[in-house]
Design a protein around this nucleic acid. Structure first.
Lengths: 343, 343
DNA sequence: GTGAAAGCGCTAACAA
DNA sequence: TTGTTAGCGCTTTCAC
């Protein structure tokens, strides 16, 4: 069996003794509008179904300039937080006949730029981007060119764009308060050394809460590229064990992971002496001993809002929406790790 | 600033007062072959660089029939095992100027078929597939049409295809032996109710080892779609606590996760009475209390082998490779959970 | 109501 | 050594 003969609009037209135009109109639902007779429509549809004809997307894209592909660019697609959202996005997109190109920019500007360039050559229809710190200009350029762009998780102050995310400062503030209410007074905050909004705002929330309660600030900022994972853990270890803390609040899931590894590898029993809180939830935090309190982002809602918005932008009629900011609610999940300890 | 004027082969040709052919040849590295003069090449290249021209991939694809896109279809892209491989595949592909469409078939045949159909319309160049149980025929059809396909993780007995995976029976056999050597005698095996090779072979390995040592077989098979997660946990709970076992061996990572939840939610202290072993490793198993012994698949190696093979198949010269099976080594990582217990 | 024909941007067989 | 030209398969304007 060799490749089944490819069908085409032209072929169908010949077979039916009509013109390609008619076929095209029928196929694109413009038959009524163009006042094509019902029986003609019927005939075309029947034949198309019979031979199971599928239009060549490539040709269609070349002609219309629309590729029916959207890009989902995140820091690291293998990170549980992003992977979960990706999974949902995938479903929603395919339902609407869009495909999704996933990619990871590693939070690096060069990688982000290269990727965007790559996709432009491919006439991608829209971009959902978790931007690296320095690509404000590139995002602007995209918007200038009238290409739908939605940022999520983090944004650029001063750049009006569509955005889906959470109120990091508020969530972080409440989380810190939760620690304070549970009797913790020497709260260490471990975060990334970055000025990106999501992290900056989490820090702001922490600082606001500690300040309000007259507690001292104890912040450890780790470089994104802190050499090997081991040296990152060294920093955390020193911070945890030398700083005289009674609680540790991690600003993102992979720092938490490193932190828990530090405990496990050094003095597993000590973890019970500390309050532990993390931004971003993970199924394993429910299983950990002790179970780890977390601030959960609404991943499903994020994915739906992202796609809902993207689909609107993709439609001609609604594409000139003024920049829309969708801020979703987080949920604080108190577990064993932040229960009052005996100090 | 409006959209920068699009450049094209034709435009370049006009500007340079030469023909599109020449431009095309130079751009496609066929200049030498076509004996185009060095200065001509120089001139074209310089201008192309100056205006930063990028060929329209769509048009190129339409013309050549090659889309420079490969598909990576797995059960669930948000599963840590698949997500990690995906991340690596992504990097390797982009290096070679290929994009990757990731998608999840949920191990369902209909979804798999729909997806394959979708991609065929898009003239995808190659497929890396983690196949659902009933799509043997569809895979065959793809191969008949001379489209590069590589299966991974699981395969179809009797269907010769390119394949990358591990020796599940061997790995499972050794893992069970490990439990036996550590003094466990009543080993329960929790797996999925499926005949797919990866799972069937893991079961075979377990059965072989238990049989050789005169131990009784205790197997729990869970339907892939076992209603809600809760009912799956109910099954596991009953199996663990009513079957008089001293060790539990999970055949895949998400069953392990459910199992650990069962312990946590019911009687956390009891977990220390059991030997616990899991197929597939996860960072969190190192942090769990107790740390969980695991059979680790070589994810990085899998990704590299997959892409290395795919790139070969994508090249005209090597596309008619006879079906190649690449079987990679697993690693047994003994941790606290399989240390000898006091019975 | 339907059809002819142009053209999206590119490649490559054929001519010169 | 370079140019002319015919499509890849589709949409859409304009003409009938």
């Amino acid at each position: 069996m060799k490749k089944a003969k490819k069908h085409s609009v032209k072929g169908i037209a010949e077979k039916l003794n009509i013109s390609p135009t008619t076929v095209s109109f029928v196929l694109n639902g413009k038959a009524k509008e163009k006042k094509i007779s019902d029986e003609m429509i019927e005939r075309v549809l029947a034949y198309v179904k019979e031979i199971n004809y599928k239009p060549n997307q490539l040709a269609q894209s070349l002609r219309t300039g629309k590729s029916k592909i959207i890009v989902f660019m995140v820091e690291d697609i293998s990170n549980h937080f992003f992977a979960s959202i990706a999974r949902k996005i995938e479903d929603l997109a395919y339902e609407q006949d869009y495909k999704v190109l996933f990619c990871s920019n590693e939070n690096k500007d060069k990688k982000s730029r290269d990727l965007i360039q790559l996709f432009k050559d491919r006439q991608v229809d829209g971009y959902i981007i978790n931007p690296s710190p320095g690509i404000k200009k590139d995002i602007e350029a995209l918007i200038q060119e009238d290409i739908p762009v939605i940022l999520f998780d983090r944004y650029f102050p001063g750049l009006k764009t569509h955005f889906v995310g959470i109120d990091n400062e508020e969530a972080s503030y409440k989380a810190t308060l939760h620690l304070i209410e549970n009797g913790f007074k020497k709260i260490g905050f471990i975060t990334l050394a970055t000025t990106q909004t999501q992290m900056a705002n989490r820090k702001k929330g922490y600082l606001k809460a500690t300040k309000e309660h007259g507690l001292s600030e104890r912040v450890l900022e780790i470089e994104f590229e802190a050499g090997n994972p081991q040296s990152k853990k060294e920093l955390i270890k020193e911070f945890i064990f030398k700083e005289d803390l009674d609680a540790i609040y991690f600003s993102t899931n992979y720092l938490t992971q490193s932190g828990l590894e530090v405990f496990k590898e050094n003095s597993p029993e000590l973890i019970d002496k500390f309050g532990i809180l993390t931004f971003d939830d993970h199924e394993f935090f429910k299983i950990h001993t002790p179970t780890i309190s977390a601030i959960a982002q609404p991943k499903d809602a994020m994915a739906s809002e992202l796609m809902k918005l993207m689909l609107m932008l993709l439609k001609k009629s609604t594409k000139d929406l003024p920049p829309k900011e969708i801020i979703l609610k987080t949920e604080l999940l108190p577990r064993q790790s932040t229960l009052l300890k005996n100090h």
